[in-house]
Design a protein around this nucleic acid. Structure first.
Lengths: 143, 143
DNA sequence: CTGTATCCTACGCGATACTG
DNA sequence: CAGTATCGCGTAGGATACAG
């Protein structure tokens, strides 16, 4: 399933004159952004701060994620070199996940995003309420 | 349907002792994060730097986005108070989208994420190649 | 130009069951 | 415990057509 033979890292999107976000598969920035900004990836990265965590521990902490999605997500992050996977060959299998140096760098950015969200959720909620009220009023001018 | 009467901005997830990401719908941080980290939202926010842009302009620049998704995305962002929508009542309808003050704040964070991705795409691509090579080798130890 | 309304398909993802 | 494999549903989202 992995056509993975990507000898070409893939730079394109000539940022020369006309800036453009496009080139969906040409440039992999879009693709990487998608992976990173993924619902679960985001949470895993944010969670894996300094300490390493075990599979089950992650599953418990994130809660809502299925075993499948956690596995898939972790595999992707591992493939991208953001998370390291350490298997301890003991009787009850024990696997630790931790951020790689590369992952740590990303963590900082992600964390600021999370922090921003936390400190502005009230404003967003307010904006939504206002928008919904206005919309409802327009839709059905009750009076 | 709008429990919108949110005198309560909505803090839950007691960050007291045991930190946890969970509470999917309880705490809306998760939900907001999802919206923000959305594939298209991310690009729109990143694109809408200081200047405002028209609908078609956005569509052209992002390229790959369908008209439907652009509309939906913009509506969500508008609802969240991140983007403002200005309709000019002229013959050929003209609508301008721009970041709100709130949106500007988010833009900074998003931008750093984009920048990080751009400056590390080579490393990620490398990691992938390495991972795929290792995986392929394990799967079929040709020699 | 800027949307909105339908239709329809691909596939993300949860549920479940089975290995080492 | 830490996965992998399979099945099946729900829905995100693209294509298309129409409207102000």
């Amino acid at each position: 399933m992995e056509e993975g033979t990507l000898g070409e890292p893939g730079y394109c999107c000539d940022t020369s004159d006309a800036f453009q976000w496009d080139s969906r598969e040409d440039c992999d920035v879009r693709q990487i952004l998608d992976r990173i900004a993924d619902k679960w990836s985001l949470l895993v990265i944010a969670l894996l701060d300094d300490r390493s965590m075990r599979f089950t521990e992650l599953k418990k902490t994130i809660d809502g994620i299925s075993q499948r999605m956690l596995t898939v997500t972790l595999r992707q992050l591992e493939r991208d070199g953001l998370v390291s996977r350490t298997v301890h060959p003991v009787v009850p299998p024990r696997v630790d996940y931790a951020l790689t140096p590369l992952g740590v760098g990303l963590h900082a950015t992600i964390q600021s995003l999370v922090t921003w969200t936390e400190s502005h959720q009230a404003e967003i909620a307010g904006a939504r309420a206002r928008y919904d009220a206005a919309t409802a009023a327009t839709a059905s001018p009750v009076e």
